[in-house]
């Protein structure tokens, strides 16, 4: 049970003078239950990549296997795939359309052809999971704040009970607090349900703390793939392609250069605090 990408290539606007190679020979394997961060600069192909995973875009060449089945097979049920691989787009609040929050969240499960009771149960459950207060359930989605709208939109996808949840820049345009809250909720969701989550972002800071694997995209191909520690150890190369490692990484390297014996692999503030304290004790 996993997603396997086998030599995926994708070209935008093929046969026009504006043809752009968006994905270049991507090979990846994403096992069940992993929390993956996909990082890359604007235009690095990360959004294009995730749209392949639920069959919205069809690769120019290559194969994708979901749970061992080729999704480009003729008789493969792509509609079912979309319910298994939930994709939350950038600025998902722009997709809201119903008269109230609850009805909007019902849209997804209703499309799966479930009966009314099950639909409502799932919608309720999903709204609770994203932490939206009950009193907002019957308000118009357009009256909510930006962060609340986004939760509703995420709930809209969660209500389909996907096995894999992909979030494309879920924190874009939110204030620091809203960002923290959303990321926290996603982490909690992952720990509780054990679902596979792919988090697309251009900010290392966002993902470093939460994910167990980072895939760095650059010019349509995979540049690094590994644990946050492994990836951030290339912080100099990352900088060259316009990405930055978390601030903690920089501080740790600076401290080391100045003679404090810290572990430069620390990626979160907690780890950093621990290693600094240890080093101070030793000194």
């Amino acid at each position: 049970m996993s997603i396997i990408l086998d030599h995926i290539n994708y070209i935008y606007g093929a046969d026009t003078p504006l043809a752009v190679k968006a994905l270049d020979d991507i090979c990846l394997q994403i096992p069940d239950g992993q929390f993956v961060g996909i990082i890359g600069h604007t235009g690095s192909g990360k959004s294009t990549l995730v749209q392949h995973l639920n069959g919205l875009l069809k690769a120019t060449s290559g194969h994708i296997y979901f749970n061992g089945e080729d999704i480009y097979e003729k008789d493969y049920d792509r509609k079912k795939l979309r319910s298994k691989v939930g994709l939350v787009f950038q600025y998902p609040e722009h997709q809201l359309f119903e008269i109230d929050v609850f009805t909007d969240v019902c849209f997804g499960p209703k499309n799966l052809g479930l009966d009314k009771k099950e639909v409502e149960l799932r919608a309720y459950d999903a709204l609770r999971k994203v932490g939206l207060p009950d009193e907002l359930f019957y308000q118009s989605p357009f009256d909510l704040s930006g962060g609340q709208k986004r939760r509703v939109a995420i709930a809209g996808v969660l209500a389909m009970k996907p096995e894999v949840l992909i979030l494309d820049e879920p924190t874009a345009g939110l204030d620091p607090r809203g960002r923290e809250e959303i990321l926290h909720q996603i982490k909690e969701l992952q720990m509780k349900t054990g679902m596979t989550i792919l988090l697309v972002s251009h900010s290392m800071e966002d993902v470093a703390e939460y994910v167990n694997r980072i895939i760095v995209m650059n010019h349509g191909s995979v540049m690094y793939d590994g644990t946050p520690r492994e990836v951030f150890s290339h912080y100099k190369e990352l900088e060259e392609v316009g990405l930055a490692a978390p601030q903690v990484t920089y501080i740790m390297h600076e401290l080391k250069d100045r003679g404090l014996d810290v572990d430069t692999d620390a990626t979160t503030i907690e780890e950093a605090a621990e290693t600094v304290l240890k080093a101070l004790h030793r000194a």
Binding site: F107, G156, V157
Partner: peptide, 8 residues
Amino acid sequence: KAQIARGA
């Protein structure tokens, strides 16, 4: 695309 992803 977003609505198709929600099964539309």
